[in-house]
Design a protein around this nucleic acid. Structure first.
Lengths: 341, 341
DNA sequence: AGTGGTCGCTAAACTGATTTAGCAGAGCAT
DNA sequence: ATGCTCTGCTAAATCAGTTTAGCGACCACT
């Protein structure tokens, strides 16, 4: 891989100058008194030889690698990881950096290994990412350098990038109120564990808070709240069936995520009810299936790609703010309508 | 990030030996005649100082970085990328390597940049991955070192890892024949572009070949074949509606992927037909939605994680074979039943 | 007593960049 | 003529490892 590359010494020789001169010219150093002609010669030589600096040699001296570590708990199990990574990748490229990716799988041994691996490679900074928005403890070892938390917060008050779930909760509730839904709104996806343990999820509580706040302001209270042990389609299905078994049928359903909503759609379909004519449905995440459902599902998007970008910005740009709350835009789709009757 | 780390010189000093001795002991070099006691002292000193080698310095000399580049066309748009990466990540960790990830977005400028970025960092090898199984041309620049194609093949005959789509086609057809379906099997998802241009897809043609081969052997021919411009739910939906409008209703449907099948389910639901009582459905990919559908969808799994692993093995393990075709296991689920009547 | 071999270890070169310290020559003032 | 500053450039040190070449002590053998 890349043997016989021209070295700085080759460039200097070809230009008839010293390595020092070549190095300074190529690095665009200010304040050197090298002649315009010397600049020309160095650039020409570098061009001609196709010179590319050996980054190992450079970072040995400078302790900079133009490399960022992206350490996450779980890469694969969620589709969202891809977007997070892609955003970070883009922003890193714009800043001439590259991403070193490792995964801890939530395992202490792997985490230890991952941290050592990236520190050994002298990365310029670490993005510590969680796949579900949550609070976590950052290993002390990486606190020696710049760290940004992505989709997570920590007790240490490190800079972090998280989605505005509370705002999303407000948007969702407001969208229903706007259409005239009031006393027949039901919620699917309450979950004690997610709501009470910030190390499991910060999203559940924030979404709920946003929903409650907006409904309270309109003096509306929920018709029903269904608890689900997980946020998967089967749980949404079961919850929806439960709701349909009750005397008062809801006019609108808020699901805590799109997968629950998918399950709810299935139950509604079986019961012969139509979305949105009989019941409106709105949700969170903007999983691809939201757009695939019939009718398409209104939801609030987790802007993962933008979050990934933001993390790199916080890490590398001096000017960037300390932390950031990324808005979750509402996607108005076919699953919303005014209440029937 | 990792300043004041102990150096090899520190370890040597503490052990009362030379850097040479320390280096040799720590690298477990055979054939050195260093005493057992010297070994002890070096290990003790390294342990005590928490010594970790500076990889930049090491790779400057050895031209090895224990880093693999994972260059892919598109990371984000498909969920599968995560699994591919995760498999590679795991296998890399087991071999004490780390993954440098870049994305070309199918853009020549970005590709150029990505290639340079990884070559500058002297990666030990490159995994060149495509998100849809296809044929592609590998940039000449990376041919200087080990390269493995992942989910792709190239005219250069480089080692590659691809799923056995033809085998999957056979499994799918065989599963239906086994249940007694014969003259009323329809296919959804024919697509000239995907079938004819290997730079777009290798999967479509291979799947089709597998299906045809198995049906031919049983002297069965397809009842109908629907063409779709894309393999998305809406196209599956439209195709299924088209089929239901014809005089002879199919007893089983083969969809070229799970998203098409999802669309087909929607059309069947609207038409008041049940899967699998009225119509069996089987498909390809094992997208997470396959398990979420009601009834759960039988499909053949793209073993992305295993493919990621395999690519690293081909790249780093001497013993590994040249190329590999990874089996796509059949997932038998609820969407299959014998033909009605 | 001289020679050769093994043992246990080390000095120094080397990788390819950056950076510090400083040199030679020109121009100018005293 | 001497000292001073400025210009344009370079030698050498440095980063932290790996690797080559070889040194001195000791033993055995003739």
């Amino acid at each position: 891989m890349g043997r016989n590359r021209a070295t700085l010494a080759d460039v200097a020789r070809k230009a008839g100058l010293s390595k020092t001169a070549a190095s300074m010219v190529l690095n665009g150093r200010e304040g050197t008194r090298l002649s315009a002609e010397a600049h020309q010669r160095v650039f020409a030589a570098a061009e001609e030889l196709g010179y590319r600096p050996n980054l190992a040699a450079r970072s040995l001296r400078t302790r900079k690698t133009a490399t960022i570590a992206f350490v996450s708990d779980i890469v694969a199990t969620t589709r969202f990881a891809g977007d997070l990574i892609r955003g970070a990748l883009d922003a890193a490229r714009e800043r001439d950096h590259v991403l070193l990716i490792t995964e801890t799988q939530g395992d202490a041994t792997f985490e230890q290994y991952a941290i050592e691996a990236v520190l050994d490679r002298q990365v310029d900074g670490v993005i510590y990412a969680a796949m579900a928005t949550r609070r976590l403890a950052v290993p002390a070892a990486i606190l020696g350098g710049p760290v940004v938390l992505l989709n997570a917060t920590s007790p240490d008050g490190l800079p972090s990038v998280v989605p505005d779930d509370e705002g999303a909760g407000r948007s969702v509730a407001a969208a229903l109120l706007e259409l005239g839904h009031r006393d027949a709104i039901a919620l699917i996806g309450r979950n004690r564990l997610k709501e009470d343990d910030p190390e499991v999820s910060l999203a559940a509580r924030a979404r709920l808070r946003g929903i409650r706040q907006t409904l309270d302001e309109a003096q509306v209270s929920l018709l029903a709240e269904c608890f689900c042990t997980e946020w998967l389609p089967e749980h949404g299905y079961a919850a929806m069936r439960g709701l349909l078994g009750k005397p008062k049928r809801p006019s609108a359903i808020i699901c805590m995520n799109d997968r629950l909503a998918f399950g709810a759609y299935q139950a509604l379909g079986e019961a012969g009810l139509s979305v949105p004519e009989d019941i409106s449905v709105i949700s969170f995440d903007d999983d691809p299936i939201a757009a695939w459902l019939r009718p398409s599902l209104a939801t609030t998007a987790l802007p993962h790609e933008q979050m990934g970008r933001r993390a790199v910005e916080l890490l590398l740009d001096e000017s960037a703010a300390e932390s950031s709350l990324v808005a979750m835009p509402l996607r108005r789709r076919r699953s919303l309508a005014p209440p029937a009757g």
